[in-house]
Simulated assay, not measured.
Amino acid sequence: MAIHYRKINSTEQNPQALAHLDREQLAERIGHDVDTVTRMFTKLRGRKAILTTRSGYTTRYLVHPDLMFCQQQETDWTRSVRKMFEQHD
């Protein structure tokens, strides 16, 4: 499992500042065990707050942009990700 996070803050505009967390790193950062993180993501997927993509042995999660960012403006990226979520409704 890989999670995107912003190294600086949620308004970071530089795509190079994005990194991925694996399940263990995420669990450590949020103070939960790996099994709890897995259960949380199952619930979040069910509530359409995150979208799962898979390629080979890698699973990545997209957080809905309305939950992830504190942006007042639309960007091409947020419009694209919202469209992906709409297609999975």
Rank of each mutant, 00 (worst) to 15 (best):
E24T: 15
D35P: 06
Q25Y: 07
Q73I: 05
F85R: 07
A27W: 12
H64I: 05
F41N: 05
H88V: 15
D35T: 15
Y61R: 00
V63M: 12
A2S: 10
R29F: 06
V63T: 10
R6H: 15
G56A: 10
R79C: 12
T36N: 09
T42I: 14
E86Q: 10
V81I: 15
P65A: 02
K83A: 11
N14Y: 02
R54M: 07
T53Y: 04
T42V: 14
P15V: 02
R6I: 09
Y61I: 07
M1P: 10
D89C: 09
Q73M: 03
C70P: 07
D22Y: 03
K48S: 11
R47C: 04
L26N: 01
H20Q: 04
V81P: 07
T36K: 15
Q87T: 07
W77V: 13
Q72H: 10
I3H: 12
T36Q: 13
V34I: 14
H88Q: 14
E28F: 13
L26C: 12
L62G: 04
I30D: 01
T78W: 04
I3Q: 00
P65S: 00
D33Q: 11
V81H: 03
M1W: 03
D22I: 05
G31C: 01
A17F: 08
H32L: 12
K83V: 01
W77R: 12
M84Q: 09
A19P: 00
T58D: 10
E24I: 14
N14G: 00
D33P: 08
W77P: 00
H64D: 08
I50L: 05
S80R: 14
T52G: 03
L67S: 06
E24V: 14
K48W: 04
T59G: 02
L21V: 04
